[in-house]
């Protein structure tokens, strides 16, 4: 498997808001280390849109991007943290939330992600799946207790 594949996926059509800063130098190298990105994320978490797209470092898991994200998209705050706890089958789990309410994600066999809001398509990264869900939510909130499996 080639982890680069996930980075060349087109943005979902729903992602019409501001294009994400790539966080990369023109030659493709990440501008930020994961450590510095984490610090920036921590700093930005209480303010506003930190949109970071970093090449994954460490394990090359297809369909993932950075280790976490925290941004405002279409006026909604979306956060995600990649858990190191291996879920069933050793698949890394993500804790994703929209305005603080959990958004359950599922994996596809190609490493892409589906959300409870959008079950009949998959997205290359958890961030894309969260943005797709936000685009679908409109003015609504996620129900707090509709979990996945």
């Amino acid at each position: 498997m080639n982890s680069r594949v996930s980075l060349t996926y087109p943005r979902p059509a729903e992602s019409v808001a501001a294009p994400a800063a790539t966080g990369r130098a023109p030659d493709g190298r990440p501008l930020l280390t994961r450590r510095s990105a984490t610090l920036i994320l921590l700093g930005a978490a209480s303010t506003t849109a930190a949109v970071l797209q970093l090449r994954p470092s460490g394990t090359d898991e297809p369909g993932t991007g950075p280790e976490s994200f925290d941004e405002t998209y279409l006026g909604r705050r979306i956060t995600g943290v990649r858990s190191s706890d291996a879920a069933a089958g050793g698949v890394p789990a993500w804790q994703v939330a929209v305005d603080g309410r959990p958004l359950h994600l599922m994996r596809r066999a190609d490493g892409s992600y589906l959300s409870m809001v959008d079950h009949y398509a998959s997205y290359p990264t958890p961030l894309d799946a969260a943005r797709g869900a936000v685009a679908e939510l409109g003015d609504q909130q996620l129900r707090p207790h509709v979990g996945g499996m």
């Binding site: 069933a88 066999a109 892409s112 499996m149």
Partner: peptide, 18 residues
Amino acid sequence: HIDFYVGDGDGALRVAHM
């Protein structure tokens, strides 16, 4: 239907989708 929707990347038995 909600309970039996399992993704094929999640490692569990799938009976309804994918």
